[in-house]
Write a protein that binds this DNA or RNA. Sequence first.
DNA 1: CAGTAGTGTGAATCCGGATTCACACCGCGC
DNA 2: GCGCGGTGTGAATCCGGATTCACACTACTG
Lengths: 200, 200
Amino acid sequence: MSATTDSGSATRDRLLLAAREVVEAHGYGGASVAAIATRAGVANGTLYRHFPSKAELFVEVFRDVCDREIAAATKAALTADDPLGKLDAVLVTFARRALANPLLAWALIAEPVDPAVERVRLEYRRTYTGHVARLVRAAIRHGQAPPQDAAIAAAALVGAGNEVLAGPLSPLAGGAHDPVAAIETLRTLCRRALGASDGV
Amino acid sequence: MSATTDSGSATRDRLLLAAREVVEAHGYGGASVAAIATRAGVANGTLYRHFPSKAELFVEVFRDVCDREIAAATKAALTADDPLGKLDAVLVTFARRALANPLLAWALIAEPVDPAVERVRLEYRRTYTGHVARLVRAAIRHGQAPPQDAAIAAAALVGAGNEVLAGPLSPLAGGAHDPVAAIETLRTLCRRALGASDGV
DNA sequence: CAGTAGTGTGAATCCGGATTCACACCGCGC
DNA sequence: GCGCGGTGTGAATCCGGATTCACACTACTG
């Protein structure tokens, strides 16, 4: 078995974890090989015993985090039974998670990353937006929203959420706002944007 | 007069122009000192006769482009006389400009840039969102939209526009959508998000 | 015409970080 | 004990750009 394909060695796992922690603490920009290795308590070279490159390591980190995110959204959707309720649950879940870990969210959404990692990010965003689009379509079918281009609506919803919660602008990061109230505002905005009749 | 402060030399202007052109053609990532100098028809070192660093050069480029963008938005706002109409005009103007020059828009909005340049980008986004927020407030005062947190609403509108038109997701870049229809959808979405009663 | 300020040149240099590699150390089967 | 694969080490190396610098060339000025 080649070293680049091995899985589940303790050191390997520690590197994966360390990488995520460094990103959470200092963003992708602060995540040098040296920083990661140090935090994992190993030498620089050791990283290359388990990953062909720094980029590949991060591809895996991003995949993990994104999968977790999608899973959380999927689970959240189960808590409601009508499409609009699901949409709302997904949005709120995303918002809570982003607020709980702003730097990670920023890294996932907007921070400059390596091209290889960028590809994973895109993939994730597509998947996520795809889910949202599906819910929008369902809402339309159920008469909870008027007919519209679900793909664009979904992109707009995701974009709005990103900007408000984790975007480079991030009013919240600016600290001038109450998170809970902001989420409430965002919910209303999204519900109305779709043309849903009224209160959830 | 120190070289770092001079203004309006022909070569200097050519460098500024070349820098913008390179970004438009290859994004910020492709804008190396060598590429810019070559396009301007001068040697690498010449750049440093007119700018203290590559970052400073780009700060100026971004400033120029952003000022132009804000100016366009401001002008667009004048074409309507009610707040909601102004908002709509600003949105459409932004959309058209972004579609006319996708790579520049992407660079301005989402592409990885140098920290010094990033600061300018932020500044610009704040200004832009600030304008939008002001219009939202006006719309509320005029009874064209229900009371709401204008800052958050503005951020959401800007985020939605960015994502749909120039975001990393960019459905349009994917090529699967008709730009005109997309803008139309976006308009509707934004109008409704604010809770405006109906058609423009 | 010497002196000097401003500008242009581009090869050499510098720099931050990723990547490599020669050298251990360990545990295993023989 | 010996060979060997797997793993860890960290100093040396490599690399892609940005930045510098010693050397012109030009246009003034006295």
